[in-house]
Write a protein that binds this DNA or RNA. Structure first.
Lengths: 126, 126
DNA sequence: TTTATATTTGCAACTCAGTTGCATTTATAA
DNA sequence: TTATAAATGCAACTGAGTTGCAAATATAAA
């Protein structure tokens, strides 16, 4: 199920990702957009944007869901599998523009990988 | 807070990890040991075993908590930071006995990393 | 422009992993 | 054997995320 209609909710959500270079958690979006739309709508629009390859999602530190813009993803293929960095001080999450080699595992077939690196970001480690 | 007393719950839980070479989710342990102890006890004992460096924990696919035996961890240091492999068919999770190099990130200080590789295990890919 | 209709939204109620407070039980040391 | 600190069970809670359904709305057809 892809994005079909240009709704207000969709545009407000997309604007959040335009203004934010890093990743944003669903939780944070619910807090930010509380007065503008229902949390159910947020979850549903995010899901559609992910299906359409506009956003990608991953799980942060505490198992909550984060979203960030995709680079070169499509409905069928999410090539945007990169590590994410979460600051243990301020909680900010960024996509890392590097590729990490996933080793061959004999007998096993690798399909995907999720890499979360934790530490102190540029601001918090200064 | 470390493990202090040799209680029945502790021994039953440790036995589960003796008989299982891979990782076990808290959820699975609650199911397995339902008749033997309360889920609160399971969560609390697991937490203590982790504090003591007997087990380590990480988050699986869907954000639920998994535990596995440590190799060479201690109260103060968890050196057992290795990738985990989760089978997308049968759900089984294993610790991978390989080390993956985390790249230097300029301006950022890396403290920890969580790597979850997803795919088909030896049994399910055969 | 109006209308028909499928999609989207809000709301409330729910799910489910994990947590907390507190009274009771139990392992351990004196 | 007893005192007591630690561990346990239970019930109620938390919080992210989901679901069903009625109401609202974007879009295409007339």
């Amino acid at each position: 199920m892809g994005v079909i209609r240009k709704t207000q909710a969709l545009e407000i959500l997309l604007a959040e990702f335009e203004n934010d270079s890093g990743a944003i958690s669903a939780k944070e979006l619910i807090k930010r957009l509380d007065s503008q739309m229902n949390k159910t709508t947020i979850y549903r629009v995010l899901e559609k944007l992910e299906d359409d390859g506009v956003l990608h999602s991953f799980l942060g530190n505490s198992g909550i869901k984060w979203y960030a813009k995709c680079n070169g993803c499509s409905k069928s293929r999410h090539i945007d599998v990169h590590p994410h960095f979460q600051c243990i001080d301020c909680g900010k999450v960024d996509c890392l523009n590097i590729s990490m080699k996933i080793p061959e595992l004999s007998g096993r077939e690798v399909v995907a990988s999720q890499i979360l690196i934790q530490g102190k970001c540029e601001v918090c480690s200064a």
